[in-house]
Design a protein around this nucleic acid. Sequence first.
DNA 1: TCTGGGGTCCTCCCGCCG
DNA 2: TCTGCGGCGGGAGGACCC
Length: 415
Amino acid sequence: MSSQTPTAPPIRRIAHLDMDAFYASVELLRYPQLKGLPVVIGGGRRRVDEAIRNLPEGGTLADIPVDSFPLLKDYTGRGVITTATYPARQFGVGSAMGLMKAAKLCPQAIILPVDFDEYRRYSRTFKKIILEVAPLMEDRGVDEVYIDFTDVPGGQRDGGRSLARLLQKAILDATGLTCSIGVAPNKLIAKMASEFNKPNGISVVYEDDLENLIWPLPCRKVNGIGPKADEKLKRFGIETVGQLAARDRDWLVANFGKATGAWMHEVSWGRDSRPVVTESEPVSMSRETTFDRDLHAVRDRAELGAIFTKLCEQLAADLQRKGYVGKTIGIKLRYDDFKIATRDQTIDRFTDDAKTIRHTGGLCLKRVPLERPLRLLGVRVGALAKAGSPEALAPAGSGTHRAAAEPVATTASLF
DNA sequence: TCTGGGGTCCTCCCGCCG
DNA sequence: TCTGCGGCGGGAGGACCC
């Protein structure tokens, strides 16, 4: 212990920044004429792309007449809504809703395809701006980041509010987009706080605010408590974070398991020591696709085989482009009843080769029942290593060797 | 005509090994 | 030699997130 600190150490201040209605806002920058109208984004790309392609020639995107955009009522096919503008939400349309159902609720809504490339461009821009100010930033997807304000100049002023305001302005100036920021003692609370004042808001939360601001919230607001855990908590009469905090740690462990129970106890008391992580390596990469119609392993064998090959080629290209190799190859099926089956197999050397993935994936497919119609097929490569790294170059077969599980006898020599 | 795609992490189970 | 046990890693499935 030293006795020489004349100034108090900085208090841990973590920010969570969340772009407001990100996809929809980016689309409205492109198509300002759609402002105030019900718009949904999502759906099978091909069909909507076609509709967009048929828009009149000439001028800029902003000149395209509103009445030439595709409407939800004319849309046919599968798919879900990725996001909807507020005018669309007033009709009860929302994320993850099937497009057919949405079309009944709001047939006049304009439907736009998801354009991830464009969202990623904006994503890179706003993250670059943040990094210029605060170097400790954790990427949490295309529209979200955590930022460690603790040691950033000005990061302690007003509990972080000044810095948050500065970031909001810099991002708005550069992109025309607004965001909401929560600043708190840790990531858990910061994440909740960023939702307090949406859109374009700032919320600053201190440790002392736990009881007033966090405990009244429904458990579902905790990042990590999803629909299943929430339902189970409700069955025990636990609706709010405060009610969760009132439960005994041992009781939570007994009812939710060692890790989850202990974690629930910690979060309910606002405790979270996870650092802001600036770099991470991917664990797996995958490609999957939902078919336009359900396919059958026997009747649609050729079509399925072609789709599978294409997925493997796309995945291999992804790996090569990003510079990774992997040694656990897996497949995923979704049946017409929405049940999912997965199979994995670890091979004895790292690969990013489409043929190897295709072959090993084919072996996995032989181990899965193929009687029911399928609606989705996916392929995945895990246990990744950087291409060319010592690990990736290690001699094959150095690990434990084990025979793959016996193939289930099915119709599936097809693949 | 419900219900996407791309991820991470956790749990449970099982087989292998000492 | 048999049995029990714990550690470990792989495989399967599920919950959750953006």
